[in-house]
Design a protein around this nucleic acid. Structure first.
Lengths: 235, 235
DNA sequence: TGCCGGCTGGCTGTCGACAATCGACTGGCG
DNA sequence: CGCCAGTCGATTGTCGACAGCCAGCCGGCA
């Protein structure tokens, strides 16, 4: 039974702490925990069926990641997202991906691009079929793969933090349907530039791509972000 | 007595947890905790005079920061630094600072540059006086100020992680004395380009500056990094 | 009626203790 | 003599409980 073995292996490598981090990530990214909502350790521990001790460390991690904000002796709450945060997020994301592309061009053997090609093709198909969710997932895959292919460990670490926020933004704001074909097709110039090993063009392409996405997201952000009158509903 | 008030204010805002983070940062950055050295919670707690609970959370934070590496159920040790890490660190640093400069050029009122001017001048003086430590401190100030002036909060957060590693690298490898004038003077072209609002030139200047620094540091890195045969000396 | 002080409930910060797990040592067997 | 299994010490993972702090509420006073 390979399934049991697999889950066992996960349990071995993943401590309860990491498991809780994943659960909290999921809760925040899915919107189960909405921005501004307080995280009461006692309640959360009860809901997760664990003690407060293994819960406090994940909260610290989420704090480092910027997903929650902790005020000493006052408590923790899910961080809010202003328009400024969106703009900053996408500008940083742009330079990180540009760095990744430069790394890829400098080092890679060309055959690697097949993975990106495949993702792009599937994304185009999904866009034509108007499958929004699928396009989003493949979009994330594309950019994750791009970073991974750079072989730049520190960049990968930094990206993980950024990607977390990007996913959160994408969840909080549902992309408009008429954008998705544009989004899907706008990956192709990037790929072409990488294939030609044209660093200049690839950098411009990725930064334009990310900037466009950022603008689309930031466009009418304030509509979604509620003043958050300290709602106290449970998880 | 303003001193007492000040320290009181610090005690209010800084929980024991944050205090411990600072202590551990200092210990790792100063080299009191050397790369590869294990962090035994029990011992560390005894030495700091606290319980293990408020110690475990800071360790998680340092783990997120990449200063230590934790293996579940195996323990935590101070992370090592390979040459590859140096190269990656400085390449990432380059694009972050380039982004900061672009932000500054896009938004700033010109008078801001006085702070950087002042730092540069003091750095040149210190270099002429051959005061290595002073030059290093001012060097860090220059780049920290650059980032802060960008007004880019997320960039600031990301930079803090990078700067932490940079400081650690600088501590582990003592800069050669004959380099410091070069280092001091190489900030001036960056400043000039910002003054001229020439984004292209400023970006090139900062990336060249950082790359040079990275090359100097990485040059003979392996000499310093010991194989670390699991030395067990106490803190 | 408005402001100031004490009080109280809830939450976080911290602690000591127990349980689970891993690595290393030791002894026995082929 | 080399390899494997069992055991033991050390260290981490987890828990429940207590203390301290903060915010908000309530009562008294000008």
């Amino acid at each position: 039974m390979p399934d049991a073995l697999h889950s066992l292996g996960q349990l071995q490598n993943k401590s309860l702490r990491e498991h809780i981090v994943d659960v909290l990530h999921e809760a925040i990214l899915c919107g189960d925990l909405s921005p501004g909502q307080p995280l009461i350790e006692t309640d959360l521990a009860a809901q997760l069926g664990v003690s407060r001790a293994p819960l406090r460390e994940p909260i610290q991690i989420l704090n480092s990641e910027g997903l929650v904000e902790t005020i000493p002796r006052r408590g923790t709450r899910v961080s809010t997202l202003e328009r400024k945060d969106i703009v900053e997020l996408y500008s940083l994301r742009g330079v990180l991906e540009a760095l990744a592309i430069r790394c890829i061009i400098d080092q890679s053997d060309p055959c690697d691009l097949r993975r990106l090609d495949a993702i792009c093709e599937r994304m185009s198909n999904a866009a034509n079929a108007n499958r929004l969710r699928k396009v989003n997932d493949l979009d994330h895959s594309f950019h994750d793969t791009l970073i991974a292919m750079s072989g730049h460990c520190l960049l990968q670490t930094t990206w993980n933090l950024v990607a977390l926020r990007v996913r959160r933004v994408m969840t909080l704001r549902n992309m408009r349907n008429d954008d998705i074909r544009l989004v899907a097709y706008s990956h192709l110039p990037i790929l072409d530039a990488i294939r030609d090993r044209d660093g200049e063009r690839a950098t411009s392409a990725i930064e334009a791509h990310v900037a466009t996405g950022g603008d689309l997201v930031a466009e009418d952000w304030e509509v979604d972000t509620m003043p958050a009158p300290l709602q106290r509903q449970d998880l």
